[in-house]
Design a protein around this nucleic acid. Structure first.
Lengths: 185, 185, 185, 185
DNA sequence: AATGAATGAGATTTCATTCAT
DNA sequence: GATGAATGAAATCTCATTCAT
């Protein structure tokens, strides 16, 4: 009996439940999440959900919090790695056009997250931290307004591209980013 | 004999139900929509919901379609009204900072809309028309890429501002818009 | 405007509704009959059902009555046509093995009929007339008990054959019928 | 602590529900079965019906399967008990005229069963086993065709007698059975 | 006479949550 | 600590029937 992945003493179970919840939301939509579906997706007994989480509201809060933190971390890592303005600008383009955030799954989940956060102060706070963190990262290379503008571009282009049958390509996105970055000149 | 509340003469009932559905979503979130809440909000008997709509899925599809069309129309009107590049740029700023779209209600509904559209081809198609229409309006004054960039800015700034305790102010937004608009100079 | 098959002044509409009701029962089972399905099958407006019939109970009563009469007539015609004991015996075999009654549809409907008749004195009376009529026909060639026995054989073999992957064939049935007919010898 | 009416210890509940379902069908007809009536008859909470059975269709399938098995067992027991041709013939008469199967309740249920089985392969299979089993029992004393003929007589006489104000009496039935049994002589 | 839009009553079904073990 | 059988409350949905036209 090695450290099994289930049964009593399963330290990762809580996290697996949250990930499963996000999977279920991604697959069926928050509108159709049920305990049963989450339990099944997580491979845990039904009863353990209400054992770990007081109720669905708390479970979703934690799940969306986890999502925001995960995405924020990935997003931040790319920006932090940039050493120059040039690299920072390229990182922004990469975030928009690459698969950093632009995964269909993550984007879809972010819509659900925004909707949920609007009604949930706790999650809203996490989102704000994320927003602040990404701006701070950008602010190491750009002035505050440019940081905000780039952040807005990431958001807007990502969403529109995901619905667009002919998304704005990397070259074009880069041109817009350059214009915003060089706007004082 | 004014429009009675009963009998076969209530031509606007269908629309009233859809508006009520959006109200309920705005108030409680799509995650908590129920027929009962919608019926109450619309002031119609419960049974009439499934008389007008095959099931909840169809009702929501029609409601979100209506939302997309409404918002698109309002959005488009502002852009169409612009006679010069200058005015078009100001319209973009107005859309971001004014109450055209930025209503908390509409913004919140748009998150739910995006989430719903991701799973619903019919609604997705309406969203694409909307996106195309707003780009076409902008394209009367700007080149295609600038149109896309402005559209992305509207989306991104609106969302971020709605979550931001200290939103980017009108002056700052205008500066960014100018940079994008004048990016060739 | 020739004598159209629908619209006002449609003398056959009542019968078409009853036939449609039987079709619906045959297709979905009495357990799932609805006014809407019947109206659709009959090609008549929904409202005409309750115009012609007080309620579902009455409609079904009339439909099953019609069924019993139809089947009884067809059944009786074959027996009446027989001129000799020999022919009467052959008619019985034909009823069992041919498609006189043994249609899957009619047999299925007869189960529903029996179930319905058990609770409905009016329909039960029709069924009794039918039973009496077929015995009377048989009694022109056979003594009363033989008539009853043949009637029972028709019932029993028809039912069992319909469920039997390898039904009793015509030759075998004929042998049994002969044994019953000739039982005094 | 006897078997309590609540909590996880009610091993016979599933069967009680099925019996209650048959009771309700016998009383009101399959056409009017509802979860509520069954739950009341079984003395269980409404929610437990869909806990034990996916939906009404499954519940009825199981109930009719149970019916077919019960009746088949009782029917079979009488035939198995027969030691001689003579006794087997008497058992057949007893089945027709006695209260083995001829109960109004069981007969009525069998009409509903036949109707249901026609649409339900699972139940149809159970019915076939039953038919086969009773023929096999008879075949221990009679040739295969005689077995089929007796089986048909049981079916036919039982049904007709149940609708007949003056049913065929035991003596008469016995005479017919004898004729079939002795048909080679 | 005939219709079909409309609805209320009730059906099925779902599911978060409880709680005995 | 952990479970899953069980249930009540409420959801969705169906449909016979009514009734204005």
């Amino acid at each position: 009996m090695t450290g099994s992945t289930r049964g009593p003493n399963d330290p990762r179970r809580r996290e697996r439940i949250l990930d499963a919840a996000l999977d279920v939301i991604a697959e069926h939509g928050a509108i159709k999440v049920t305990f049963r579906k989450i339990a099944e997706a997580a491979g845990v007994p039904l009863g353990s959900l209400t054992y770990y989480f007081d109720d669905m509201q708390h479970l979703l809060t934690d799940a969306f919090t986890r999502l925001a933190e995960t995405v924020s971390t990935r997003y931040g890592a790319l920006l932090e790695a940039a050493r120059t303005r040039q690299e920072a600008g390229e990182a922004v383009v990469e975030i928009i056009c690459g698969k950093v955030w632009g995964t269909d799954r993550d984007l879809l989940l972010s819509y659900e997250l925004y909707a949920f956060a609007t009604r949930n102060p706790e999650v809203r706070a996490v989102m704000r931290s994320w927003m602040q963190a990404s701006r701070d990262s950008l602010a190491r290379h750009f002035d505050p307004l440019t940081a905000r503008a780039l952040d807005a571009l990431v958001e807007g282009f990502s969403i529109h591209n995901s619905f667009d049958p002919r998304p704005t390509d990397r070259e074009a996105v880069a041109a817009v980013v350059r214009a915003v970055v060089d706007r004082h000149h």
